[in-house]
Design a binder for these strands. Structure first.
Length: 548
DNA sequence: GACCACCGCGCG
DNA sequence: AAAGCGCGCGGTGGTC
């Protein structure tokens, strides 16, 4: 059973129930204030269909209503418009319409039903039927599963924001004070930074050196006789000069102060929770992005501020070597799957004799998946190609396809965008040097796009695995404990291949077991009987900083 | 003052 | 130790 929810006139909601053949069985209109109770009354688990989860679900959550499953038409539309498997469908061949321009909105910007003229005209029932038709006709991929996973991700994202990351502002402040000195007056430099500034100005003999400005800093360093091409830390680390340690520490600490300092704390932490906004499908590969607060870049330095509530625990779970394992499954490479049978894939590669050291295995795999050509990484790729021809062959083929300007697809059928078509006409260049330069640029752009498509097949399939893992885990967590979402064990944070569950202490071990089981379940869902394992490292802790 | 490109660096 | 992929964000310094 599907129930489509749409905005109706006068701030009302129209609900259309569809049967197994997607034929309307009922239509009902009611005021939007009644939405939570109306949804709650349909507890038999229909799949709710709506334009944008971020616009509908937060209000339901606020009213204490959780839904089991949904179809997020905006996200699904984006997948189907681009997927190779649905390229010939009516949905994909139509001119771009409102669904392509529909931007996700939170419940706060524009309100649930004041969503602009264009959006108000979108017909969710018609769009839903077009999507179903496209999926039914698809000649490849497993798009039904992908759309379900994508939509489950949208529910999870809203629930993560609703729950928030448990955050101890007092601990965060203690960390900052320990590293930077006490909180300075607004606009003032923290004491430790002021001290370092004085020191490095003295050591570089440059009383007004400004390390906050890369161009100025570069000039200052050159005046001091240091020849570097940039002011990046890794380049400065190679320089022997008495001022360098102070400069590096200054850069490190000023980064902490500006990105995750007291200002950040004031802006993003309220009532013991950090509540980031996640953007499911925000990355071309299907990974999530985030909006504000830098949720996906929380530095290790401040993770100790993430603390379970009293009587609760954090269950921190990290999928070990997710991308290479995904590549083994995607390519059906039995030799690589065998190397992955222990807890550590890279050691398994060494034991099988493919390479000599764990480091070689690790950097070689990175090179294979990212398109590395230089250094240790580039040297190892051919060796891995001999040991794992199927796996390496798959990423090579993806790179060649990208260089030819073709799309590539994930396991479930998410397809990459086509490269931008900025080919200059050959005829309009009469200068040979100019023509050569363009030729060189074009080749370099092609190779860069090949590295993108090479990585796309792995990163996007890994994102699918992670969605399946989380969706299964979300369902299990709901069956533990009782009460509202925040009273039961619930997902509190997600970072590509890592999840954090906040749980009453008494249920923590049970949660840990479910985390492991659902990881295995996600592997079977994607790769069937193919023998590739997805071990997760699970820690039950009070502080995020104590994980693993 | 608003906007934008670039740098540098945090995360996976 | 960095390189090859994907991001977001704060600061600077340029343009309009």
């Amino acid at each position: 059973m599907h129930i489509v929810l749409e905005a109706a006139g006068d701030g009302g909601v129209r609900a259309t129930g569809l049967d197994e053949s997607d034929e309307p069985r009922f239509t009902e209109e009611f005021p939007r204030g009644r939405l939570p109770e109306w949804v709650a009354a349909h507890a038999d688990g229909p799949r709710w269909v709506w334009d944008d989860t971020a616009r509908w679900y937060p209000r339901l959550l606020d009213a204490g209503v959780r839904v089991e499953r949904c179809t997020d038409l905006r996200l699904c539309h984006a997948v189907l418009r681009r997927a190779l498997a649905t390229a010939r469908s009516r949905l994909a061949t139509a001119e771009p319409n409102g669904w392509d321009r529909l931007e996700t909105q939170g419940p706060d910007d524009g309100g649930l039903f004041r969503i602009g003229d264009e959006t108000a005209q979108l017909d969710a029932v018609a769009e839903f039927r077009l999507q179903r038709e496209a999926v039914a006709q698809a000649d490849g991929g497993r798009l039904g599963l992908l759309l379900a996973a994508e939509s489950a991700g949208a529910l999870i994202a809203a629930e993560l924001t609703f729950a928030g990351v448990p955050w101890r502002a007092d601990v965060h402040d203690r960390i900052l004070t320990g590293m930077l000195g006490p909180r300075p007056a607004p606009g003032m430099r923290p004491a430790r930074l002021a001290e370092l500034l004085g020191e490095l100005r003295e050591r570089f003999g440059s009383p007004d050196l400004n390390p906050d400005s890369p161009p100025e800093l570069l000039r200052g360093l050159r005046r001091a006789g240091i020849s570097v091409s940039s002011t990046r830390s890794w380049e400065l680390k190679r320089v022997e000069h008495p001022g360098i340690p102070a400069l590096l520490e200054y850069k490190k600490l000023s980064r902490l102060a500006s990105a995750n300092g007291w200002q950040w704390l004031d802006s993003w932490v309220r009532d013991g929770r950090f509540t980031p906004v996640y953007v499911p499908g925000g990355v071309v590969t299907g990974r999530w992005a985030s909006n504000g607060g830098g949720a996906l870049q929380l530095p290790a330095q401040v993770r100790d501020a993430v603390r379970a509530d009293d009587g609760w625990k954090l269950i921190v779970a990290d999928a070990a070597q997710l991308e290479p394992r995904v590549l083994a499954g995607l390519s059906g490479d039995l030799a690589m799957a065998r190397a992955a049978q222990g807890a550590d894939l890279y050691s398994g590669m060494v034991e099988s004799g493919a390479v000599q050291t764990r480091e070689q295995a690790k950097y070689g795999m990175l090179g294979a998946m990212y398109g590395g050509t230089r250094g240790e990484s580039g040297r190892m790729v051919p060796r891995l190609g001999k040991a794992y021809p199927r796996a390496l062959g798959l990423v090579e083929a993806a790179a060649r396809a990208g260089e030819r300007g073709e799309s590539v697809s994930s396991l479930l059928g998410r397809s990459s965008p086509r490269p931008g078509t900025t080919w200059p006409a050959l005829g309009d260049v009469d200068d040979q040097a100019e023509a050569d330069e363009r030729e060189r640029r074009a080749r370099s752009d092609n190779r860069a796009w090949g590295r993108f498509t090479r990585n796309f097949v792995v990163q996007s399939t890994a994102a699918e695995w992670a969605l399946c893992w989380m969706a299964a885990l979300r369902n299990r967590l709901w069956t533990l404990g009782s009460g509202t979402l925040r009273e039961r064990p619930h997902l509190a944070f997600f970072l590509h291949d890592e999840v954090l569950v906040h749980s009453p202490a008494g249920l923590a071990d049970e949660v840990a077991e479910h985390v492991r089981q659902t990881a295995a379940e996600a592997g079977r869902l994607l790769f069937g009987a193919f023998p590739i394992e997805f071990p997760v490292t699970v820690s039950v802790v009070d502080s995020y900083a104590d994980a693993k």
